[in-house]
């Protein structure tokens, strides 16, 4: 890992940490209040707040995980920087697409 990747990983971690807390609180709230899927969708659909909250979450998590997976690959597999970077980037794109699809599904009206 070089300093550029280090800064990106730390920055995205700093973004993700509070978002995870809010996310967990939301899960507790939804389950304790017994909200149905329809109740949840009624709150999230068309909401710019939830769209940006989970949009930022997905982007930050995809970048953060890509750098982490790249590090794991360079240390634990025979792949070098370039090969590990390509494979991890592919994983990051997949992660982003899956996350973006989920966000779109709950926030689009």
């Amino acid at each position: 890992m070089n300093v550029r990747l280090y800064v990106w990983q730390r920055l995205t971690a700093a973004v993700i940490a509070p978002l995870v807390l809010v996310h967990v609180v939301v899960i507790f709230y939804a389950t304790r209040k017994g909200l149905s899927a329809a109740d949840i969708l009624a709150r999230t659909r068309g909401s710019l707040t939830w769209a940006s909250f989970y949009g930022v979450f997905v982007v930050a998590a995809a970048i953060h995980a890509t750098i982490g997976v790249r590090n794991v690959l360079t240390e634990w597999s025979p792949l070098r920087d370039r090969g590990a970077g390509l494979l991890a980037s592919g994983f990051g794109v997949l992660l982003f697409l899956l996350g973006a699809r989920a966000v779109v599904a709950v926030v689009l009206p």
């Binding site: 890992m1 070089n2 300093v3 990747l5 280090y6 590090n71 920087d81």
Partner: peptide, 9 residues
């Protein structure tokens, strides 16, 4: 030391 293989590893 900031390059790949440097302190951030």
């Amino acid at each position: 030391v900031a390059a790949s293989g440097g302190c951030h590893a």
